[in-house]
Simulated scan of single mutants.
Amino acid sequence: MATWITRFEPPANLSVDPVRVAVKDAIDVAGAVTTAGSVAVRGSAAPALADAACLAGVRAAGAYVVGKTNLTELCTSPVGDNEAFGTPVNPVAPDRIPGGSSSGSAVAVATGEVDVAFGTDTGGSVRIPAACCAVVGLKTTWGRVPTGGVWPLAPSLDVVGPIARDVTGVVAGMRLLEPGFAAAGTPARRVGRLRIPGLDPAVEDAVDAALDAAGLVVRDVRLTRWESSFEAYATIVLGELWRAHHRLLDADGLGVFVNEGLRAGSRVGGAALSEAMVYRRDWQSEVSALLGEVELLALPTLVAPPPPLTDFVGFPLTDLTAPFSLAGVPALAMPVPTPGAVVPPSLQLVGPLHGEELLCATGLLVEAALGQAMPGAVAIG
């Protein structure tokens, strides 16, 4: 039961074959308490008076919200573990982490309990669990999907995005978030390949093979500010975590990891936060300039296969995802079938601002080339 925090009964007027949707328990659903995966929050929270703004399309489409999924406490950890509510079991590799913070959402999709799940992504929290559970996740452009009624981690970076078994399901999920959404008519052809030192060679090879199979024109590219982007990202996350949730410091039931994060955030002064925001603008400009030379960027989602549940400390889960959260651009994580892999490597495609349509079209091309598109895909609208 660790996948779910709350389950809902189907409504009386449910259609014969409804789209089944899971909602991360950081997103308000009317009548349910939003716990943000925290006992400390649950103890004082009242049921939400209304759905989060991003769920308007879900209701209009008559989809069935199956329940609210588990997550790491306050959306803070990319591991996917939760001491209080239990850790969702990775169905692909039960001894490995499920990835977080949207762990329950990815697991609900991977086990077939739902067709589409919604998560939040601040530094990789949709893409990392998608990669760990061998499903597809889309981090949307910052500001594209409304976040009213969504638990904030770092409002300057937080987004809502869909997770599904394949890219067609992600397109369906985007249509629920943004009615009328459709993949672009033409996929990208010119892709910039980012090569980051220290990655597992087998993961790199799988990504290269996928791009080659899809017939994409690939050239190596680089981002000069890549290494230094992490400091600005961490400053913003910790500083905004403190500003949003300082009242929870030392609260009864709050986990050690979150409490330490709040203490670290308390030391981020206004000047440091402002400096990080200036850096963020420069970084966004560099990423956007590179995406003016090529249509998309490509790299793995994780530096290596997901680590064991018993040995994840120090594994750099956000190394390849956080820089694009800082840039605000959309990114698609999708599995690459690889014989003998415990968990299939995950390809990350990164697009320009508001380039979700192009990302999805290109993801569909890659899936078709790999022969991995799922039968019985969800159709909405």
Rank of each mutant, 00 (worst) to 15 (best):
R20D: 05
R20H: 08
R20P: 10
A30T: 03
A30H: 04
A32S: 15
V33S: 08
A40Q: 05
S44N: 07
L49S: 14
A50C: 08
A52R: 06
V58H: 09
G62N: 11
V66G: 02
K68G: 02
T72H: 15
C75T: 13
P88G: 06
G100Q: 02
S101H: 08
S105F: 04
A108V: 11
V116H: 04
F118S: 08
G137D: 01
W142V: 04
V145L: 04
P146C: 06
P155W: 08
L157I: 05
L157N: 00
I163S: 00
V170Y: 01
R175V: 00
R189M: 10
V191M: 07
V191S: 07
L194D: 04
L194Q: 08
G198M: 08
D200E: 13
R225W: 06
I236A: 04
H245T: 03
H246A: 15
D250N: 14
G253Q: 07
V258K: 03
G261A: 11
G261E: 05
G269P: 11
G270N: 12
V278P: 00
R280K: 14
S285V: 12
A289Y: 00
L290F: 04
T301A: 07
L302A: 05
P305C: 06
P306H: 07
T310E: 14
T310I: 00
V313F: 10
T321R: 10
A322E: 05
P323V: 05
L326R: 01
L326N: 00
A331F: 01
P339R: 14
Q348P: 08
L353I: 13
L359G: 04
C360K: 02
L370M: 12
G371V: 09
Q372A: 15
P375E: 09
G381E: 13
